[in-house]
Amino acid sequence: MLKFLGRRLIQTIPVLIGVTVLTFSMMLLIPGDPAQIMAGESASPAQLEAARERLGLNDPVPVQYYNYVSGVVRGDLGNSIRSGRAVSTEVFGRMAPTVELAFYSTLLSVFIGLTAGVVSAVRRYTFIDSALMFGALFGLSMPNFWLGLMLIQWLVIGTGWFQGFGWFQASGWGTPQQMILPVITLGTAGSAIIARMTRSSMLEVIEQDYIQTARAKGVSEKKVIYKHALRNAMVPVVTVVGLQFGSLLGGAVITETVFAINGLGRLIINSIRARDFPVVQGGVLVFAFLFVFVNIMVDVIYRLLNKRIDLN
């Protein structure tokens, strides 16, 4: 297992290099001159040149890339144009709410998705199955910014029960009251996807010969489902959960904006508006690293679930 983990980590190196190439080229490709932004609209040509020199924009591209990567390795992501503070400080300071939001949303979608999927599969073609799958389709089709706005409209403004805004405006962790709505908003689509995946995977597994073997042993139906079927059905579901976590990070950008959460997503949005490229670059890089990390974890879980897989 450790050997596998080590190999898997080594395999991520090319991926991470690819990510740095992409985030670096983003700088080169997007319209607008960073030096101009830094120096201000009214800067003189001399000031502009000085800014260029300071940002290293006069160096050849490979040298710029080398400087960029060696910075990344040392944890130096440059400085924010707006605030002048280190990008790493800005980004890591905002990471906690985003990761927490994605984590709780994943938990929620796994819980709801698995339950709904299993119930649907076991009660195949009944009213419950149809109702759950209709719900899943609805949850999947609903854009999460709209869902977020509707939740605010009905539950926060309508009843005053929840405090929808400002999860992390102040420092410290959010209260459950503040967290519930964003987590629901972000977790709904995932629940729907996992529910549908679990259902179809369960239906396939239930038809397998070894389920018949289990029944012929005298195993109770409940145990047939949970001990024999679910574990096998989980294998493809785990993959989806991993991918889902990645898209949750992306979805967080919107959800954080709707609920005014001071997370990484919102930081990126604001930095794009302000053309604060180093921060955008740093934020995207951190997102990408997170995604790679989560997928390694998924592979580990996958392997624990399914001993047959030899990830050589």
Binding site: D209, Y210, Q212, T213, A216, K227, H228, N232, L305, K307
Partner: peptide, 14 residues
């Protein structure tokens, strides 16, 4: 009861 196909009649994850 003994079934036909030994390749598919055992639970692969147990």
């Amino acid at each position: 009861m003994i079934f036909q196909d030994p390749m598919t009649s055992l639970n692969p994850t147990m």
